[in-house]
Amino acid sequence: MREQPEQQAPPVQRLRIRYAKRGRLRFTSHRDFSRAFERAIFRARVPMAYSSGFNPHPRISYANAAPTGSASEAEYVEIGLAQVLDPAAVASALEEALPDGLDVVEVAESPGGSLADLLEASHWQLDVPANPVSAEAAVAAFLQAESVTVERMTKKGLREFDCRGAVVALSAVPHGDGSRLDLVLRHGVPAVRPDDVLTGLRAVGGLETGPAPLLTRVSQGPLDPETGTVGDPLHPSV
């Protein structure tokens, strides 16, 4: 019989990390980030807890990564440690070890429970070249529609779904030479992305989105159903 592997001790501390993807690093895929993050953990000498089994791996949980090409100020990951550390010291060490553009925003102790369950919605800013009058008209047409069907290629082939139901709030304001769309998007299944909403806006309102609109996640976390605002998953009770 194959010898059973040694059982690893459970984490003595769990930390939740908020990080940003900025500039050219927004084109980093989730797989590329996970590799960079694990290398940063090793270089920073963070004492990780490991899983049990024949192939132990560091206790790292990723949650709801932004689509490749999107900038973000609110990406999250949770790590389990073999020693209790000061979250501020971990933040400083990881910031030194990660490349510029993948930036640690905050590290906090986990209060328990599931981080993924707290990520109910995202607040996005979408910068498009459309003039403000056209953008406002497209937004109005979109919000008046009961449903807006779009298509997106997935790993399982071309998929058709409604992108209107996931939109909690949407507005347009002038920004530079074009417009900025302010979007609150509820997470769900199927997952509706900000580029799906842009596709819907083109379909129902003729919105000019340009070849490469800048999509930036400003925050993600618990959704207040009364105000439609997105809270802070590191401090959910605030």
Rank of each mutant, 00 (worst) to 15 (best):
M1G: 15
E3R: 12
E3Q: 11
E3S: 09
Q4K: 15
P5M: 13
P11I: 02
V12A: 03
R16Q: 09
A20E: 03
A20N: 01
R22Y: 01
R24C: 06
F27A: 13
H30F: 10
H30G: 04
R31W: 10
D32W: 05
F33T: 05
R35Q: 03
E38P: 05
E38A: 06
I41G: 10
A49N: 05
S51N: 12
S52M: 01
G53Y: 06
F54Y: 12
N55R: 15
H57Y: 06
P58D: 04
P58E: 06
P58F: 05
I60L: 05
Y62G: 07
A63D: 08
T68I: 14
G69S: 13
G69K: 09
G69E: 13
S72I: 07
E73H: 01
Y76I: 09
Y76S: 02
V77G: 03
V77C: 06
I79Q: 00
I79P: 07
G80D: 08
L81T: 02
A82H: 05
Q83E: 14
V84I: 14
A88M: 14
A89R: 15
V90Q: 04
L94R: 08
E96F: 07
P99N: 00
G101I: 05
V104S: 05
V104E: 08
E106W: 00
E109L: 10
S110P: 11
G112M: 12
G112E: 11
L119H: 06
L119Q: 00
L119Y: 04
E120S: 08
D127L: 15
D127G: 07
V128E: 00
P129H: 08
A130D: 00
V133C: 12
A137M: 13
A138S: 13
A138T: 11
A140L: 12
E146K: 06
V150F: 00
V150N: 04
T154D: 00
F161M: 07
V168D: 02
D177C: 11
G178H: 01
G178R: 01
D182Y: 02
D182S: 07
D182P: 02
L183S: 09
V184A: 10
V184Y: 09
V184M: 13
R186G: 02
V189H: 11
V204H: 10
G210S: 02
A212S: 14
L214G: 12
L214F: 05
V218L: 11
L223V: 03
D224A: 04
E226S: 04
G228Y: 02
G231N: 03
